[in-house]
Write a protein that binds this DNA or RNA. Structure first.
Lengths: 228, 228
DNA sequence: GTGTGGTGTATGGTATACCAAAGACCACAA
DNA sequence: TTGTGGTCTTTGGTATACCATACACCACAC
């Protein structure tokens, strides 16, 4: 059945070229193992421009944004480079994450509804301490989701936005370390205690547990993870 | 005495046009009372371009950055507007500030040297509880400096960077409210207790005091300050 | 008199041409 | 053979011309 209307082709998906370039670059960088020795960290503006099919201007705006977020570094007349975070920077990020998520937990005890907290509970209940090893992939996702859920329940948009920007880095570290040294088991226990504190509306305890949980990740990374 | 050398004029001050446009815009917005009823919140790209003497491209990049930082909002085909933060957003910012500064305080108890903490002490000692009213202007500055100093002692660059971005908004609120309802006196006491906790290397107490101090500001704003 | 449609204008968005600087490479001279 | 200089190439930086859209205003018809 042929269209009776003209039905002009949708040129873009509604997003600006800048936004699309930004998304494409971000996912490309995200899916790349930038710590491999042979990783090509140099980006070529003109090459990218051709490959995305957009001109350099919107591309540069997207790159400028990534630069500000710290994913790439633009050096005048030298090039654009994907940034390898130093270990110290990763540690700082995890520390900031701890500060923000623990504050979100504090807020959650004050502002989240019982039903919202109950939903959090179901996230935790899916994994018992001993079954975790059997379904690593799933737990790795569930682990991330749990932390994002707490942040959501804090109902502070700024915290959500800031952690979103850190997420890219923190996620990869969380996934990389969750199954080292029995950390998954410990994680299950921690999460369960956190939920209990939240449901008990125990503000101080919830805050402390979340902070300690994430700072433990920090210590683990400091001791055992090698970057650079 | 005429130059024997050619001595070509220094064209720029070394900064890129984008960076200069950014600085100029930021200070311009900072020094403007955007809450006045007759404030002109609309920015004209071409007009600004002429007034700064740069073309639209670097100007737009600067504006895009301000947009991302939330100082202005760019609406496609509508214009660029200076953002009036809503009260809710201000409250969220103060909350985030509390989370970050309290974490910085925690870190300071672990990583700051005795002499660094002693210097902090001198910042506090300049103002006794009853003399504060006499030199309001000075105290207002000292108050801000105190908080920045704690953040510096946390030695987490990311915390410093993030609070820097919030600073613009939080500073104006701090200055606006510090002399309401005897808050200055309370502030002096708080600061002194915070320094004591830091010097005693009492991590938990320092963190808690800083958090509570800033959350009190948050409550004060929520109750007594009218924006929008 | 009111409503609708079309046109004009202002404003961002995009593409492209050109500029400037830094580094690599090569030729030539000592 | 080695060092110095200049040039060429690569890359980002800047300016500008052009395009698309949203809104306002006005004319015309009902």
């Amino acid at each position: 059945m042929a269209d009776t209307q003209l039905n002009i082709a949708p040129i873009g998906e509604g997003l600006s070229l800048k936004a699309r370039a930004y998304d494409a670059l971000k996912t490309a960088i995200t899916n790349m193992n930038i710590y491999a020795d042979d990783a090509e960290l140099r980006l070529d503006e003109r090459d990218l421009s051709q490959r995305f099919g957009v001109s350099r201007t919107p591309l540069r705006e997207a790159l400028a944004q990534l630069d500000q977020e710290g994913l790439v570094k633009i050096v005048a007349r030298r090039g654009i480079f994907i940034v390898r975070k130093t270990k110290a920077e990763i540690l700082d990020m995890i520390t900031v994450w701890a500060a923000l998520e623990s504050m979100a937990a504090r807020l959650a005890t004050q502002h989240a509804s019982d039903s919202e907290l109950a939903r959090l509970h179901t996230l935790v209940d899916q994994f018992s301490q001993d079954k975790v090893a059997a379904k690593m992939g799933e737990y790795s996702d569930a682990n991330i989701k749990f932390h994002q859920a707490i942040i959501g329940l804090g109902k502070n948009q700024l915290i959500a936005d800031l952690t979103d920007k850190l997420f890219f880095h923190v996620r990869s570290i969380r996934q990389r370390t969750i199954f080292e040294q029995d950390r998954a088991k410990r994680s299950v226990v921690d999460h369960s205690e956190i939920v209990n504190a939240l449901e008990a509306r125990d503000t101080e305890r919830a805050e402390r547990l979340v902070r300690e949980h994430t700072l433990r990740l920090r210590d683990h990374v400091e001791r055992y993870v090698t970057l650079d």
